[in-house]
Write a protein that binds this DNA or RNA. Structure first.
Lengths: 337, 337
DNA sequence: TGGGGGGAATGAATCGTTTCAAAGTTTGTG
DNA sequence: CACAAACTTTGAAACGATTCATTCCCCCCA
């Protein structure tokens, strides 16, 4: 690559580098004649701005980092899309990082984003809010938690009330007459999981005679769900739950696959099943899946918006916790028998 | 953000900036004692490398751009995952761009990636290989086409034989006795769509008495599929196809939803249905979906690998076209009646 | 004709990291 | 004890875009 810089463009157009820069950034300040000459030179030489140099001077990049738990989960790609929409309005790009529910990868992305001097970071964090995040913020990178409430007010966040969602799901199962509920989800380190479980516990407590057991999984994927389903199938019939609440739709679909394909268990006849997130595929499942809907794209959109406000306000920003309410969507998988 | 640079670190540790840089990049060349002192200073001051400055000096960034047609399509997130795996082995990051089947967005990402001086670009391009891509390459950014064969040998590519895949699908439908096939897909500008259709045409030509019509869609999404399904339902029963080959699984699931939810058409009884890509959700659909499997993660992995080889070889690289073979996966949606 | 005003263009300084030739220090050997 | 070889460390010079204080022009008016 023959490196073409503003210097070469300036020479070709017979102007100074300062003028080239002005044409690029404030064409109004340059005479139309010169603008034309410089643009011709740019086109002729095939000049492409070097973003690294630009950022170095500017001090900040024009992108926002987004770390999600799993890019293969449609819920998070929807969040990303919403974030991208809002970011695009400001001419910012979204850098998408995939922590794969792993602390090491999460940290690796945070390091990367910090080195890139991103405008800010949106993250659906694992486990406790480690000091990695606190340090990040203290060093000047605005941070907004996504799909997770900030318990301690030290962070801004955009989330959905997961306790309420868990309550909705379990209450619904109980209300269609199920009594042996199982919560499928994990690992316990993920806040969304524990919150949804907490909500479910609350609902169960209000329904005398209804029990809730926990079947822990290693991740929130279809595969993990299938394994959980197999564990259920391995039990004698009398010890199986009569309803399953899965911590997300991927798990639920995995459970459904296991019950349907390897077992003779009927959904919802023998076991009712409800998931969480209401991804597009839930409605199209073997047995259309009941779920708890979250406004995914709106979460992303709002999170970027909040991030921009926080960045603009600087230091003394009053952190804001935005909480959306989840919504129960009933489909065949929890129809009364 | 109090800007901490190598200069401050050097001062704190009582060494020169050159030494700090050496600690960062070649710790072996620095005495253990000094390394320790510098690292202590780094930790104490909370120094974070400025990647922009680094890139500026290096001339190239440590990332690879990937432009896909649709991030919400699990096929592409699988490709991205494969690409990420190979890139990570070299300490490179993947920047994921979503063209949403739009030329403007595709170009915007290419511009962005070029300004970032990415190591190279992987792209599943729309329409013809415009000169945007040619110029990109001429200016020194290695480019590899993904999920699309390079017809003219001017580009390297990693793809699956879409004509063969289309043939497999249509041949399968004909072989289970269907005679009025419909191809659902579009827009015609997308190469994958036209290739798959071409393969289907070839198969149909070999089966006397079997016809093939084309039902064009505006995009390759579940929604577009649902619309196509509704168009089929709107016809009198006698004019409906008895088999549908959808250009990808998202479309197929949309068609399935329309037929199942709004109509009284049975799949596969009245209409057999086959998709393309074999995404994880295909197996879990209302009616488990037959599909044409592509080795998605492997495509991404191989594409990065090829890109790296091309980048290493420099100018005179012999472009390589890698073609994988697709595979027919038969499930309930095309079981003989 | 002299001077003032305003629009346009200039170019040196800056951002922070890496590189590399050169200088400095230690170790080992005859 | 002198000297070479092997390590360490140094610091100034890039990389390329942007910023402003400054200079340059041109035009108008007194």
């Amino acid at each position: 690559m023959s490196s073409i810089s503003v210097r070469e463009v300036a020479a070709e157009a017979g102007v100074s580098v300062g003028t080239v820069s002005n044409v690029l950034n404030r064409p109004g300040k340059v005479s139309p004649d010169t603008v034309a000459r410089v643009q011709a030179a740019i086109a002729h030489l095939g000049f492409v701005r070097n973003d690294a140099a630009r950022q170095l001077r500017a001090g900040r990049s024009r992108s926002i980092g987004l770390v999600v738990l799993d890019v293969a989960n449609p819920f998070f790609t929807d969040v990303a899309r919403g974030a991208e929409d809002r970011a695009a309005e400001e001419g910012l790009a979204i850098l998408l990082g995939n922590s794969d529910e792993t602390i090491d990868r999460e940290n690796a992305y945070l390091d990367l984003f910090e080195e890139q001097r991103v405008h800010g970071v949106l993250i659906s964090p694992l486990g406790d809010l480690g000091d990695r995040l606190t340090r990040l913020r203290e060093r000047g990178t605005p941070t907004v938690l996504v799909d997770r409430q900030a318990e301690d007010r030290r962070f801004s966040s955009v989330a959905v009330d997961d306790v309420a969602g868990g309550y909705l799901a379990a209450d619904h199962l109980a209300s269609i007459g199920r009594v042996r509920l199982a919560f499928v989800g994990g690992p316990a380190g993920i806040r969304q999981v524990t919150d949804r479980l907490e909500g479910a516990r609350k609902a169960v407590a209000e329904h005398p005679g209804v029990s809730l057991e926990v079947i822990e999984t290693e991740s929130l994927t279809v595969l993990a769900g299938r394994e959980a389903g197999e564990r259920i199938l391995a039990r004698p019939e009398s010890e199986r739950p009569d309803a399953v609440f899965a911590a997300n739709d991927l798990l639920a679909m995995g459970v459904l696959q296991a019950l349907n394909m390897f077992g003779d268990v009927r959904v919802p006849g023998d076991i009712a099943l409800i998931g969480y997130d209401d991804i597009a595929f839930a409605a199209a499942a073997v047995v259309p899946l009941s779920s708890i809907r979250q406004p995914s794209a709106l979460i992303g959109y709002t999170a970027v918006d909040l991030l921009l406000r926080e960045a603009a306000a600087g230091e003394g920003f009053e952190h804001e916790q935005i909480v959306f309410q989840p919504e129960l969507v009933v489909r065949a998988s929890t129809m009364p028998r």
